[in-house]
Amino acid sequence: MIPATFSYARPTTIDEAIALLTKHGSGAKVLAGGHSLLPAMKLRLAQPEVLIDIGRIAGLNTIAERDGRVVIGTMATHAEIESSALVARACPLLGQVAARIGDAQVRNRGTIGGSLVHADPGADFPAAILALDAELRLASPRGSRSVKAAAFFEAMMQTVVQPDELLFEITVPKTATSAAYVKSEQKASGFAICGVAAIVDAQAKTVAVGVTGVASKPYRATAVEAALRGRALTPDAVAAAAALAANGVEPLGDIHASPEYRAHLAAVNTKRAILKAVAQG
């Protein structure tokens, strides 16, 4: 219940944050919403020497439209994304996913950036940002770079973010309303045992499917997508394709769900998500 000691810094600009990260190296951790990090610190599973609180950097929680894309600041909370009119209009999938994260209090503090960088295998947002082909923008002493969602997650709780880098915004293309998120929850924690985000394009001929909770990192169900590309999305066709949702991945197993059950849910939830998305189209 009590974190170990650390020193605390509260930069007011991204540059200042980067400078602090550079100075303190791997002993430092960025504190965004804190809803992954603080519980780990209270159990002393995480004992960073320096916490760099990015909560006071102006503009990091904006949700705006830019160059035809929706731009979301790293500090945007799940609740802000859930209730954003822009998100609801231009990229409803993100709002749907945000609404399924944790509980109301967690959504009020937890941030999209914090969740993505923590890369918990049961986190919800990764399914959506994969399906959406989001771009993640990182700042470092070397300037800024963009990383495609598909290249962002490396392994369980590992991303491409380097110790001196800061994820500062996520951009997604404007997408149709034909999107759905179907999630089976770990009963105790609310994390996804299997969460599937599906987007169906305007002609309902191609689909994008992001899967979280099933494997040690979130993934695109490419076999499902390929099987449906150019096909009519009938229930039978979707069901047959969805059966490939865990193809080529090594599902996780724990006391809450075995690898076989996770793989099975990947198929069921993929089918349900695609059909739900189709129904909304």
Binding site: M1, Y8, L31, G34, H35, L38, P39, K42, D53, A104, Q105, V106, N108, R109
Partner: peptide
């Protein structure tokens, strides 16, 4: 509403 155990 926030959980005050998960905020410094």
């Amino acid at each position: 509403a926030v959980k005050s155990c998960t905020m410094l």
